[in-house]
């Protein structure tokens, strides 16, 4: 069958150092896939290749069957790829709603218009997106004074504004309180399943990964060393040796050592 995202033999090296080599995987619509691995394993490089920020040396990335390598990030976005960043990237000098409005204006190809009041454009649509992530109460607030968790939710609303087919989330819950983490991932999962969006995310919090992902891939030194259901990956001896360790540092049902 034809997957939403089909990545084959993706490779990137910097000055002789292989950051990513021979990474292949597929993602189907409506599924949530986690990419885990130590820092420096190549997760961010993978993400940046997927949304066009970095051009790979070799391999192919097909979105609904179409090659997207070589397209700049803005063109990848037009093909239906939304993205959130590890360190949130929003527009701090605008209000929360304006952040979404400018995204919608861009989506509707209206950003070159030099007349008219942009603050009145796509107001309802922006409000709907904000309501979806539970931010409608804060629409008028300056984005620059939002709390961290709220910024993450705003980023999600922005990423959803172009009706994406694929959502890339780089450490979506980093820096959030545990309760916020659960809420945000549950929200994401609900939206993804309802709208048939494929989600690829990286994460260091194994509790989040094992609870929310349909499938997990493990990246080490630029190569995929394991993939499977959360349960399979958790039991994989190689993954334990390289990444997960003795299980002292996350909830491990098998060993019963968790708090």
């Amino acid at each position: 069958m034809n997957a939403l995202l089909q990545v084959e033999k993706l490779a990137k090296s910097y000055g002789g150092v292989h950051a990513v080599r021979g990474v292949s995987f597929a993602l189907e619509a409506g599924k949530i896939l986690a990419l885990i691995g130590p820092n420096g394993a190549g997760k961010s490089t993978c993400f940046n290749m997927l949304n066009g920020q970095i051009r790979p040396n070799a391999g192919s990335i097909r979105l609904e069957g179409q090659e997207i390598i070589g397209l700049p990030p803005r063109a990848v976005w037009r093909r239906g790829v939304g993205r959130t960043f590890q360190i949130t990237a929003t527009f701090p000098s605008m209000t929360v709603r304006e952040n979404v409005q400018v995204t919608l204006l861009s989506f509707h190809h209206r950003l070159w218009a030099m007349v008219g009041y942009a603050g009145a454009a796509y107001r309802d649509e922006a409000n709907r997106l904000l309501a979806l992530v539970g931010m409608e109460q804060q629409a008028e607030r300056p984005c620059g004074e939002l709390a961290y968790g709220d910024l993450k939710r705003l980023e999600l609303a922005i990423a959803l504004a172009n009706n994406p087919r694929l959502l890339l989330m780089d450490e979506p819950t980093a820096g959030m309180a545990p309760k916020e983490r659960v809420d945000l991932m549950r929200l994401t999962a609900d939206i993804a399943r309802e709208k048939g969006i494929g989600v690829l995310f990286t994460e260091h919090d194994m509790d989040v990964v094992f609870e929310h992902a349909d499938a997990v891939m493990v990246l080490n030194r630029g190569e995929l060393i394991a993939r499977g259901t959360p349960e399979e990956v958790r039991r994989d001896p190689q993954v334990r040796a390289i990444y997960l360790g003795e299980g002292l540092l996350y909830h491990d049902k098998d060993q019963g050592s968790a708090a």
Binding site: N51, Q53, P72, P73, R74, W77, R78, R83, F85, A89, T90, F91, P92, S93, M94, E98, Q101, V102, T103, L105, S106, F107, R110, L111, W112, A113, M114, V115, G116, Y117, A118, G119, A121, I158, A161, N162
Partner: peptide
């Protein structure tokens, strides 16, 4: 001043605020 509040002005401010995010929402 009108330009500041036009869609073009919004896009310009977005590019100023975050070049990363603006490229990721289709702004050249």
């Amino acid at each position: 001043r009108m330009l500041v509040f036009s869609p073009f002005g919004f896009g310009l401010r977005a590019a100023r605020d975050s070049s990363l995010r603006s490229e990721a929402i289709g702004i050249n």
